Simulated scan of single mutants.
Amino acid sequence: MTSSPNLGALYGAAGTETTFLGLAAAPELSAVTAPMALIGAPGATPYASVGSYCAEGPDALRLATRAFTANLDHHDFDLGGRLFPRPELRAVDCGNLPHQEGQPAANREAIRTAIATLLERGAVPLLMGGDDSVPIPMLEAVNARAAAEGRKLTVLQIDAHIDWRDSHMDETQGLSSTMRRASELSQVERIVQVGARGIGSAGVNDVADALAWGVTFVPGRTFHRIGAAAVLEMIPRGADVVICIDADALDPGILPGVIGRAPGGLSYGDVCDLIEGVAARGRIRAMDFVEFMPERDVDGIGALTFARIIMTSMGVIARAVDAG
């Protein structure tokens, strides 16, 4: 045999699906009625030294789900039943936002507007990046909505890096500053950051600033010692939570398609336990999945792993909506 067997064909998938999991396309955001909506953002504010290096991430993750498109109603053992318990709980795929290289302000505004529209429609936004500058305008939109409704927010970041630089390469809106910018938002009262390890862009002063603000850090080695249950105790019951997931939080052995590989990362099960636990304790208001770089992937294993995390997130949110 000279080529890999087509698993999708074996399952009955047509192999021509272009949306994530073959879900219904919803290009008109103002008409979304689904409980959650996936939307791709190829980038926001890239550094000039690397450009929009994760721009192909959203479509690569969609492609990774083609094998499962004929099996949405089969039993998912990670969720204990169908991915979506009822058809009306299915997510929709809103496609990719327009992306203009060299126009970061326009990119950020497109993301802010899209997330604000989905929140207004009552959908949980699932933002698929793109580099880790993409969450900044998403968080701004969620914050504005929370302020209008008089709610406070908890941010759970799952990432190998803490992203607390005030500025890097004369840019304050880049991927190294995401959590610093989150800390400045009016409704963000708690930030829990899980998975940091190795050497990243953070300086000693950045860590000190984060701790002074009140961040709770759970480095990768600490997480492996205390587990997800202990981390979830740091999330207040009844909290409104935004979950920010960087692909490099996971171990490169199962998700190699990232720019900054570091040993000692979380497993697929670890991340799923955190997502499921947050939904049990509070309410997931928005999620992002960023920093997947298909050009660095190995045999599609990273795309499969990250796509499965998105799928599991959809199932968890669907169950939370179903439970009321």
Rank of each mutant, 00 (worst) to 15 (best):
S201W: 13
S201K: 12
G203V: 01
V204A: 15
V204S: 13
V207Q: 10
A210N: 03
A210Y: 10
A212T: 09
G214M: 09
V215C: 07
V215W: 02
P219A: 02
R221P: 00
R221W: 05
F223R: 14
F223D: 05
H224C: 08
H224S: 04
I226T: 07
G227V: 04
G227L: 07
A229I: 06
A229R: 12
A230E: 08
I235Q: 10
I235L: 04
R237A: 10
G238S: 06
A239V: 11
D240M: 05
D240T: 11
V242I: 01
I243K: 11
I243V: 12
C244E: 13
C244R: 11
I245K: 13
A249D: 09
A249Y: 07
A249S: 15
A249C: 13
D251Q: 12
I254V: 12
L255I: 06
P256M: 09
V258G: 09
R261M: 11
A262K: 11
G265H: 00
G269M: 09
V271A: 05
C272A: 08
I275K: 02
A280W: 00
R283I: 00
I284G: 01
I284M: 06
D288E: 10
F289K: 11
F292N: 01
E295H: 15
E295G: 15
D299V: 15
G300I: 03
I301G: 03
G302S: 05
A303P: 03
A303S: 10
T305Y: 06
T305L: 07
A307G: 15
R308W: 09
R308Y: 07
I309E: 00
I310S: 04
T312I: 08
M314F: 04
G315K: 04
V316M: 01
I317L: 03
I317P: 10
